[in-house]
Design a protein around this nucleic acid. Structure first.
Lengths: 377, 377
DNA sequence: GACATTGGTGAATCTTCAG
DNA sequence: ACTGAAGATTCACCAATGT
């Protein structure tokens, strides 16, 4: 990935190299309309939240809370915010690949409007995810619950988009081998990660933690994918994308943010391919036919298989099928047949005996795969 | 609270006793329009989620998931669901007191539409709250994150409604003396709490845990308040309300649910007054003027007050003000003045010396209040 | 150097009563 | 409805300073 570039104008016929890993300066709708359609794999959007603050807020020690009162977060009405939301969602949708997915983060001020609009435009919500903050700001006046989370919506482009990327096994492995849930726990962005000006002020009022973006990309993208962030800000999406071996493209209007993002991303050292390599789980594992276990000598023809409770017994045949009485078929079909079900995962249903204990034949498949990896592919 | 009654028809002029602690049979919009306006303190609504399941869902062992496919959860389109949502929200809003609040629970299928509609109708969102499930249903296909939470929206009737009930101190005390956050952890409703038919099927597909409702009511209502549930189902709201000394009124169409709820609520034993008492803080204490401390002889005119670090000293005057040099004013104003702040709580800022130690004058206020209680008022 | 103290701060729709 | 004053209210983390 080359040093980050800034693109001021992009012709509609620009080729991929001209906009990949760049920041498009200006309004995101105008900028996105110059990208080719169906060209990005994942969108991460952190739009203005439309906070409606009246007056100042002080902490109990009388210090003033530095509120988000930037011009870019001012809208005249819900209708104006809805129109804004609709416009950028449509622009994003055009450049999203048919099997691409979109993430949007927000708070109760805006997320319900954004979510409803996404549904109206045809996006298909896959999950809503809650970012639980370990260290949220307290409620200083004691009149509400401490606002301790933000919400992310994860959606595919259409209801029909079934081929989206979800690295299920990587997520599961990262979560102590149980399924990754929809509630994620991360600290807010502080300390050395938080970009500061020379005078010590925060560069951006709402910089997101890199860990959050890393979870998003590890879950829903592959190395080499293109991640679009239409509200690039100080470039958290770009920094994490570069580190994780993804491409990015961002849109941003404010010069200060662009400058900060450019320097930040230039300093990022990408991880090596081995480090990035998705912990690919079974879904991406090479397919192993039951017959190859027989071929490999791990199961001899005539060997007996049973279910875990030894209610049924089948014998292995040399052709890679198994037989019960006069009937034979695949491990899956015969497993389903004896149970009276429509389908069955034969790999986990059928067991073999070794050293007096029953083990699923899936263990043998793992051995075959290990041998394949040792052989380099 | 008398035994639960079922009300089939209610005249618009019915008095309170006729509908309090009853289930109104029929569509909630029609039923609610017969209640007097501004008559309920809190609404808890668990509307149909508009789940969009295509075909059956099976677990990995091929057992069929008993999905929510009831007729009441079927809507032809988002537009139909929005119209339904708008209708019941408007009906509910009419009967809600000006300082009442509303809770709505939902999932990503419906909560964004409901939340946006609430904002459109003028409700003012106070918090969104996440119910994190300790034991959610797994994602059987491994194509999404495990859906491990549901979302609640808590809103006041209007932006101007500042007098809503929030038992801040009770919530804080219940949360190990730190503010209650917006992420709540509860198990889903199972075991003995889950209502089952004689044949062992669950009576209602989405019965909510009583602990969730108890948290809602303890946070946002007071004993004796009226809690309305327009989608009463099997009466979790009624059962918890009765147990916690609140009144309820529910709307329900399905006879099976009404029967189950009626029996369930009749069996509930209300807790005693001492058990439902709310932890309260200073806000609930009677006001005591600083001058009354002087009147009561707890501080003599001319007594000296200092801040905790003895940086400033003030003298008490007979009129209940304090003086520093030639300037005098209330304990609050003078505390703010010396610190150069806009505001200050003089009760905790100023101290007096007793037996060689500094104590806040708030301690003296406590003594006055204790005397008031002893005197019976 | 280790530990204690102090100060700063983060996407915030953040009071209530009397007159 | 508006004004002015009373007075109630914070958690986790980091950085800098003090002992």
């Amino acid at each position: 990935m080359s040093a980050i570039r800034l693109v001021d104008d992009l012709s509609p016929s620009a080729n991929r190299a001209e906009w990949l890993d760049t920041i498009l300066r200006g309004d995101c709708v105008a900028a996105l309309n110059r990208l080719p359609e169906k060209s990005v794999d994942v969108v991460f959007a952190d739009p203005p939240y439309n906070l409606q603050l009246e007056g100042d807020l002080h902490r109990p020690d009388q210090s003033k809370v530095d509120a988000v009162d930037d011009a870019w977060d001012q809208f005249d009405s819900f209708a104006a915010y809805d129109a804004f939301t609709r416009a950028w969602l449509l622009a994003v949708r055009r450049v999203l690949k048919p099997n691409g997915t979109i993430w949007v983060i927000g708070s109760y001020h805006n997320i319900f409007r954004v979510g409803a609009m996404m549904q109206d435009l045809g996006f298909w919500i896959l999950n809503d995810v809650v970012w639980r903050k370990t260290n949220p700001m307290p409620n200083f006046r004691g009149r509400r619950f401490q606002n301790a989370h933000e919400t992310l919506i994860w959606a595919s482009r259409d209801q029909a988009s079934k081929g989206y990327t979800f690295n299920y096994d990587a997520m599961k492995a990262a979560n102590d081998d149980v399924q990754m849930r929809t509630d994620w726990l991360f600290p807010i962005c502080t300390g050395g990660e938080r970009l500061k000006t020379a005078s010590g002020d925060k560069v951006h009022p709402t910089q997101k933690p890199e860990a959050l973006l890393a979870r998003v990309m590890m879950a829903s993208s592959r190395p080499g994918d293109v991640i679009l962030d239409p509200f690039f800000g100080t470039g958290t999406t770009g920094a994490v994308a570069k580190r994780l071996g993804r491409h990015f493209v961002g849109c941003e209007r404010e010069k200060d943010y662009i400058d900060a993002a450019t320097a930040r991303i230039a300093a990022v050292e990408p991880l090596g391919a081995a480090e990035i390599a998705l912990m690919t789980g079974k879904r991406a594992e090479p397919r192993v036919a039951f017959g190859s276990l027989v071929d490999a000598g791990l199961l001899a023809p005539g060997a007996l298989l049973t279910d875990a409770r030894k209610r049924w017994t089948a014998s292995v045949r040399a052709d890679g099928t198994i037989a019960i009485g006069s009937e034979a078929g695949s491990i899956h079909r015969m497993g389903a047949r004896v149970q009276g079900l429509d389908a069955c995962n034969g790999w986990t249903f059928w067991h073999f005996e070794e050293a007096g204990t029953l083990k699923p034949i899936d263990d043998l498949r793992s051995q075959v795969r290990q041998g394949m990896r040792a052989a380099g592919g």
